[in-house]
Write a protein that binds this DNA or RNA. Sequence first.
DNA 1: CTCAGGGTTGTTAGCGTTAACAAAGAAGTG
DNA 2: CACTTCTTTGTTAACGCTAACAACCCTGAG
Lengths: 337, 337
Amino acid sequence: MGSTLGRRLPVMADVAKEAGVSHQTVSRVLNDHPNVRSETRTRVLEAIDKLGYRRNLVARALVTRHSRTLGVVSFDTTLYGPASTVYGIEQAARAAGYFVSIVSLKSIDRAGVRDALDYLADQGVDGIVVVAPQRSAAQALADLPLGVPTVAVEGGEAGEVPVVCVDQFTGGRLATEHLLSLGHETVWHVRGPSDWLEAEGRVAGWRAALERAGREVPRPLAGDWSPRSGYEAGRSLASMKNVTAVFVANDQMALGVLRAFTEQGVRVPERVSVVGFDDIPESEFFSPPLTTIRQDFDAVGRHSIEVLVRLLEGGTEERERLVVPPTFVPRLSTARV
Amino acid sequence: MGSTLGRRLPVMADVAKEAGVSHQTVSRVLNDHPNVRSETRTRVLEAIDKLGYRRNLVARALVTRHSRTLGVVSFDTTLYGPASTVYGIEQAARAAGYFVSIVSLKSIDRAGVRDALDYLADQGVDGIVVVAPQRSAAQALADLPLGVPTVAVEGGEAGEVPVVCVDQFTGGRLATEHLLSLGHETVWHVRGPSDWLEAEGRVAGWRAALERAGREVPRPLAGDWSPRSGYEAGRSLASMKNVTAVFVANDQMALGVLRAFTEQGVRVPERVSVVGFDDIPESEFFSPPLTTIRQDFDAVGRHSIEVLVRLLEGGTEERERLVVPPTFVPRLSTARV
DNA sequence: CTCAGGGTTGTTAGCGTTAACAAAGAAGTG
DNA sequence: CACTTCTTTGTTAACGCTAACAACCCTGAG
């Protein structure tokens, strides 16, 4: 449409001519410069309105050296956690007047993260949020001497950039303490992949709670966050007679565990109690509804933008670390021994 | 870091001086212009390498009037469908050399869509993909006289822009025919919100299959895609004695239905068969594993970019409509009467 | 030997905006 | 009333790149 229209879009000079002022005055009006006579201002605004003028942000970015665009690097935005975090980021960024450009990685190795950051830097983003839940990603970030202000989400201990994350340790501890408080002798654990900082944090919290209570610490079963890996862990657990309580490192794997237990005739919570992690929207409707630890992904996303914007606008380079607490969500998958 | 460094980034002129050529020659090398002596080319490339020069894409965009950025407007990217679609879009766009800027809407009304499109147009995107599964969004799109090439995903019948979508009608038909083929007298339906085109398509496919088989068409139960609404529909269905087969319009609601059935002692698939829609990663591990209709969201996202890029680069304004077929995924939630 | 024609490079002029400075008028001060 | 100061506006010069054109060199045909 309009390919033969010929009328190019109006530019600032057109508005200026229409309003009988210089283009600089138009610029001043648009940028809320205080020293413009109100009569002139209205005349300019009318001209803008009449011509349907819209300022060219690319030209503006060239001269101001600010694109008002933030970059986001994330791993597999198909997963609930990253998707929710990115959603929070996007909402907060837009509210703060920034555009959001996204790179979603398939695998997170150092090269991948480096490429993504370069790519965004090329585009001229003013700042970057890296959702880096894996150790490799966090390290890649730590190594990179990047010229763009950056914030890591779930970035673990990496010291170079500010970090916003959920307190995984406390989450693991809460889950475990809940199960112990119900009278379980010990708590088994289906953990996430070892490269993930979140997985490590949950393991550590679980272990600490057991040790503090002076209980035996069983060997954790390995999972990869997928329902299938939970299912396989569940089959192993079902065959062990002494298992009465399991803390599963995420809700999806917990679903797999529940499925395996159902197949093997292991009743939850009558014979085994199960606690998950994340509180995905589905977990309330698992059979039975899943007791879990809620992560406020949305808050994490919002906070990361707050920190980044502060970095961009304030400029103070506080080496911040903002920790969002998880919350315990009791449902029906856990019971007294 | 580097705030006191003072050394500004190298620009094309710096490279030119370093290589002993004009900046235009540098530009030609970067743009793969054929008429550059290979010796000169290597000299320029060496200079680029030595100085760590990176071309300023903002300046380039200003003069070429192309930002190589595509905009995506989507509704609630927290949901599995939109998230997967956006993921596919992002991957395909990056592979085609485009950046992706995202706007995620909380509610899709005409004003919201209009704002999002304006917002992206201001930013100077070259093209836009609108994930518009609701009728209101599709209409908003149809009304808008936008100056930027646009493709709608799941956009229904809206005639102004090319559309890429999954064949919802066929999906609904497949689900229903499967249940009928198992000997069920008729099939009940838990539908999605009436504003959603996808919901309508599935209802229509379900109805058509029943009518073609000469069966009674029960009144569909209303849902809003959430597990909770499925749960509520499930409680209603559980109380009806004549229900033996249910087609639920998405997997999340199907989870709620399964939960309600479990609570009421209605066994699946022994007493009632259930079919879902979407094939989310969890559905294989529901109890029982859910028979469902798979939508290839990723393919939809990829196709939408293909169409858009063709529009941008070819320029032919074919009023395309690309339909991705759904596939039937048999699992254990359905059985013969 | 001359001249056309292609390959290769340089020069100049934008793209549409903001920044920096200059200029003119209004207003306040001794 | 002269002089400073503030407000308002305009003029000019970037920002870093590509497009258009000009200029030069080299080759080969007449």
